[in-house]
Nucleic acid binder design. Structure first.
Length: 603
RNA sequence: GGGGACGUAGUUCAGUUGGUUAGAACGCUGCCCUGUCACGGCAGAGGCCGCGGGUUCGAGUCCCGUCGUCCCCGCCA
């Protein structure tokens, strides 16, 4: 193939097939760079040597598909091209066959400047011919294969679960598929094979995995697509640690397949600690943690700055940013998304002028170098008295608001000044297990506690008493439910949540307690998850598992900024496929068959 | 649902305070060229300035709306 010929092949006869990547017509001699998946080889047409083929070669244009039959020739020393692996040789063509012509494409795979994404997605087949995309898709294949091989070797079976299944009323919105045979009824595409994989444990398959498409009808982001691929696995009789070992094992194999070594075991961190140190449940460990610098200020300073003295004062350190201009400093404010009355103090220099002692203490506590940027986030004194705070949680909602606001700003600053601090280098992989998530989260709009992960997650053994105590207090923000921890864990890489899992509930009595704590009657639980609850009653072994986003893993390995770079045919932010132009309205006939009427969209 | 950025030739972009005929590079077409490899030289074609409305003697430029792409918040058990 086009990327394979070497000096040792000199003198051999070869047939190359591929696309015309570039042509250089020097008159009596024509050079073509011929491209396929494996690379590029230069082929040569010389009028003196072969006038007929030379004349044919004159008609070649970019992206024509050709077959070139000829002899591999060692290039003269002064004509070697060191920038391509095949640069020591070229193919002298005896016979040229034009297999297909090409219209002039809107952009060329060999273009150096990247075309706008809209055009790339519309002409995805041309975009995918580019080197970078070929590499990304190949990486994706290698990673998936390494994971399959590793898990198979560990005794896991890959088992398929249905795509046409039952709508689950909780969680993300479902994509629905109408049934023709059962008019008015709908299948749902799975958000994850959660219940099926648990049932496979009940069915005795012991270790299951699947590299499987999942579907969620929610708004998109750079790292969120409506259909995405998960490495889904489940096993019986696990401790969280045994799941982690499997995950670390296949990630190691996957990263090796992509040419990287990673450090095992991954560090571990409690959810509460992640919030306090990073303001987020998926910390990017490449950047410095927060410092709480409240005690660096005397009370009267806090008062003068209108800072609430009962809440943390977070110092965000971004290394090596250097002196900021007035404009750059003003640009920080709009990057700040305040939650719960959090305020940003972006002008640390001014604080230094006003309160030199406090500033010195902060510099010391944060370990700031003179080049580092320090930005403070604190609660506003004007925010008034704090709302009800559950006494049981280590991090109160008011504190969480400060931490979370600071956490977002920390990332925004790091991204903006990435060029300066150079902490986002390719190949620097900082994995982390975040553990002991809260089991329940307070939903302010519904005024009730909700399952933070999903209702089949097992609570922490030590927190069963707290669950017992709070089982009838779903609408009480002060409930002990706030302090119940789940046996749930996330695996995080460089600030991206790669995957999420838990030890599941395998006992019916605990399961009904959870439903009761969530304010669900027995009848409600039965109508929602009846088949599953019934299955739990037939000798369910303890089990647990995890699911990791394959797209995200490949995205990070490829050094890409968006999932779209590692998915061959992705959707835009409006969930549209620009190449096939989906979704579209369907014919009246189709709708009639399904018994569906479409209401006109309001103008 | 909310906030922000962008939209000018096939592509990437420039376009001054609102002022004559909207430019460049790459690509494309033709001619020339025997060692190029981002080939080179000469000539040429190519524009609904996203779309609609408004202000103005005059709009790519200002205003309003709209469509599209991207990013973020909400949302994503």
């Amino acid at each position: 193939m086009c990327g394979e010929l070497r000096a040792s092949d000199a003198g051999k006869k070869a047939i190359l097939m591929g696309w015309v990547n570039r042509r250089r017509d020097l008159g009596s001699i024509i050079f073509i760079h011929l491209r396929d998946r494996t690379g590029i080889t230069q082929i040569v047409f010389n009028r003196e040597v072969n006038p007929e083929m030379h004349a044919k070669a004159e008609t070649l244009r970019n992206e024509y598909v050709i077959a070139a039959i000829g002899r591999v020739k060692l290039r003269d020393a002064d004509t070697v091209n060191p920038s391509i692996p095949t640069g020591e040789v070229e193919l002298v063509v005896d016979e040229l066959r034009i297999l297909n012509e090409s219209k002039l494409p809107p952009f060329l795979p060999s273009d150096t400047a990247l075309t706008n994404e809209e055009t790339r997605l519309k002409y995805r087949y041309i975009d995918l011919r580019r080197d970078a995309m070929q590499f990304n898709i190949e990486t994706r294949h290698k990673v998936a294969k390494a994971i399959r091989d590793y898990l198979s070797a560990q005794g896991f079976f890959e088992i398929e679960t249905p795509f046409m299944t039952r709508s689950t009323p909780e969680g993300a919105r479902d994509y629905l598929v109408p049934s023709r045979v059962q008019p008015g009824a709908f299948y749902a595409l799975p958000q994850s094979p959660q219940m099926f994989k648990q049932i496979l444990m009940i069915s005795g398959f012991d270790k299951y995995f699947q590299i499987v498409r999942c579907f969620r009808d929610e708004d998109l982001r750079a790292d969120r697509q409506p259909e995405f691929t998960q490495i889904d696995l489940e096993m019986t009789y696990p401790q969280p640690e045994s799941v982690w070992e499997v995950v670390e094992g296949f990630l190691d194999a996957a990263f090796k397949a992509a040419g990287y070594e990673i450090q095992r075991p991954f560090p571990r961190m409690d959810y509460d600690e992640a919030i306090r140190l990073y303001g987020i449940d998926k910390p990017d460990l490449r950047l410095p943690a927060f410092s709480d610098v409240r005690d660096c200020f005397p009370a009267e300073n806090l008062q003068e700055l209108a800072i609430n003295p009962n809440l943390p004062v977070i110092a965000i350190r971004t290394p090596k940013v250097g002196e900021l201009s007035r404009k750059e400093r003003d640009d920080i404010k709009p990057m700040f998304h305040s939650k719960g009355g959090a305020r940003v103090y972006e002008d640390f220099k001014r604080i230094g002028n006003k309160f030199p002692e406090a500033a010195a203490a902060i510099a010391k506590k944060t370990g700031a170098q003179p080049d580092d940027l320090i930005v403070l986030v604190a609660g506003s004194a004007q925010a008034g008295p704090q709302t009800a705070m559950p006494a049981h949680r280590k991090v109160t909602p008011a504190e969480l608001a400060i931490y979370a606001s600071a956490g977002l700003l920390r990332l925004a600053l790091a991204q903006k000044y990435a060029e300066r601090h150079k902490l986002f280098q390719r190949g620097d992989f900082r994995f982390l297990w975040v553990t002991n998530f809260p089991m329940f989260e307070w939903d302010e709009s519904e005024r009730q506690w909700m399952a933070a992960h999903h209702p089949f997650t097992s609570p922490h053994e030590e927190d069963m008493g707290l669950l017992e105590q709070g089982v009838e207090s779903v609408n009480d923000p002060q409930s002990t439910l706030s302090a119940v921890r789940a046996l749930a864990y996330d695996v995080v890489l460089n600030g991206t949540e790669l995957g999420s899992g838990s030890i599941r509930i395998h006992r019916q009595d605990i399961q009904s307690k959870i439903f009761r704590a969530l304010g669900m009657t027995e009848a409600e639980a039965k109508s929602r998850f009846g088949f599953f609850l019934e299955a739990l009653e037939y000798g369910t072994p303890p089990h647990g598992g995890i699911a990791l986003g394959l797209d995200r893993i490949v995205m990070i390995l490829a050094g890409a900024e968006s999932l779209r770079e590692v998915i061959p045919f992705p959707k835009t932010a409006r969930a549209v496929d620009l190449m096939v132009d989906a979704p579209t309205p369907v014919s009246e006939t189709q709708l009639r068959e399904l018994g569906i009427q479409v209401k006109p969209v309001k103008q």
